[in-house]
């Protein structure tokens, strides 16, 4: 086997490039402030992500710039924003993905704007969870934490985990034209979670119970299958299949 010497991180960043960032700026709490796009420029460094770039801009050029990062590892879902027309997680977006060196950053549409690139996804998700009751409703019966646990089909557990990988980043909400037009629409995030609990054998809710929650224009029948959710989800969740599953399930209650 040939030893490969020094494949470098610098392979991934064309050294010496000067990047231009066009960033949406607006402070809704500042009297008289108007939304505007502001241009910044920054020298690209190898391996630079939007996370690194934004922090450098704030540290070096404008200390008032607002944005949200928490885990900066693509796990927590805090940093979704619209980068050159595509909503995605900023922390794991490399600047090398943009050959022209022009990067436009906009806050996620459809959420309350806190300022600049920061939007209040947390408030939205909590309200959604309360409205749709997005938690496990255990079946009747006492459950002991001291006794041997109930067995569960290993495949079912694996399936549930796959649906549970949603990080509530809000990308599906912002990418959904239906949701933008209809405030009360639950969006892919809500439907995905409903599907997750509907499939959980530990959940005591019946199909009719779920119909009551999502069997309407704000629920699964409001979805027009535009698939912005499917095409932009940073976790590649099976929105298309799950929403279709719920639609069939809810329509079957007619029979």
């Amino acid at each position: 086997m040939t030893t490969r010497l020094i494949p470098t991180v610098t392979d991934t960043g064309s050294a010496g490039r000067r990047l231009t960032f066009n960033i949406f700026r607006f402070d809704p709490q500042e009297n008289g402030d108007k939304p505007k796009m502001v241009s910044y420029s920054l020298d690209e460094t190898p391996g630079m992500t939007i996370f690194i770039a934004l922090n450098r801009l704030r540290d070096e050029q404008d200390s008032s710039l607002q944005f949200d990062f928490v885990c900066r590892a693509g796990i927590c879902g805090s940093c979704a924003m619209v980068i050159n027309g595509l909503p995605t997680l900023a922390c794991r977006t490399l600047t090398t993905r943009y050959p022209k060196g022009e990067i436009t950053l906009m806050p996620l549409p459809g959420f309350e704007l806190i300022g600049d690139l920061s939007v209040n996804t947390g408030k939205f998700m909590r309200q959604l969870a309360e409205r749709l009751q997005l938690w496990l409703h255990p079946r009747e019966g006492e459950q002991s934490i001291h006794a041997l646990e109930q067995a569960m089909d290993p495949d079912e557990a694996a399936r549930l985990y796959e649906l549970e990988r949603c990080v509530e980043c809000g990308v599906c909400v912002s990418a959904c034209a239906t949701k933008q037009m209809r405030d009360t629409f639950v969006g892919a995030v809500g439907l995905m979670k409903i599907a997750r609990f509907e499939l959980d054998s530990r959940d005591g809710r019946s199909v009719e119970d779920f119909y009551h929650v999502i069997g309407n224009q704000d629920g699964v029948f409001g979805c027009m299958t535009l698939l912005g959710c499917q095409d932009n989800c940073p976790k590649d969740l099976p929105h298309m299949q799950q929403i279709a599953y719920l639609r069939r399930k809810m329509a079957m209650t007619l029979l």
């Binding site: 255990p138 459950q143 934490i145 067995a151 569960m152 290993p154 079912e156 557990a157 549970e164 959980d200």
Partner: peptide, 18 residues
Amino acid sequence: PKAVRELAHWGVPWTRVT
């Protein structure tokens, strides 16, 4: 062990033995 079992009651899809 109690905490693990409690979390199973609260919905954690623990990976199971096959």
